[in-house]
Amino acid sequence: MRIFEPHAHMYSRITDDYEQMALAGVEAILEPAFWLGQPRTHVGTFLDYFDALLGWERYRAAQYGVHHFCAIALNPKEANDDRVNAGVVEAMPRYLAKDGVLAVGEIGFDDMTPREETWFGRQLELARAHGLPALIHTPHRDKKRGVERTLDLLRDVGFPMERALVDHNNEETVGLCADTGCYMGFSIYPETKMDEGRMVALLQKWGTDRMILNSACDWGRSDPLKVAKTALRMKRGGFSAAEVDKVVWHNPIAFFAQSGRLVEADLDARPVLDGELFSGNSILRGQGQ
């Protein structure tokens, strides 16, 4: 079983997690930009964070043979902060051009404020201008209304539904998304959001088309192996191996391949780790990295 983990905040995880994920079958990770638990007060700290997603995290992942991609955005919480919002979005085009940036995200609503709506819309325009899909966060509180407003905004600005991944769905919201053509994300968490058993029930009810699982692991109580655990539960629940593969591998790849920057066959090769590989005398290679 190969897993494409489409939403993991590895920035806040230790290197052992990459190893555990690799052991569980994770071959690729997409890390969306988010907030860091504490508000940032300077645009520069966002840019350093984006650089870490593009550089350091990719390097850490590569050590375990895991391909690391990212999505870049001003997150919904900090969209409310006038110290940083405009400056971050102004700097984004430079990052959206980068190799390995497969989407704009996480954008969306959190408290559903006017500022959130402004920067959500502005970043959908950026996604469209760069030919990128959008990874969309939905609120923890008043989620159903948040999803409704998200879908309304997507329609209002004419953003193609199949290029939107509406994330953190639950039993109350999946029905709103199912007929729109958007991709539907589910964050499987130890306590909140969604768990393995409920997820399997949802897949039995709604099918596997455009359904995407993630662990959304971050610095809170979360588990980077939740996609693997849910896949196991799917098998026990009677899903075929092909159905499981569709949900944990093919669906996320199909979504992010819309960026034009992800080719499934490229995932068969080992990611770039260092410049010594082609010199024919690699000591690192000898260490079995």
Binding site: W56, Y59, D274, G275
Partner: peptide, 8 residues
């Protein structure tokens, strides 16, 4: 930086 690729 701790990225072999860049140091090299």
């Amino acid at each position: 930086v701790t990225q072999g690729e860049l140091f090299e």
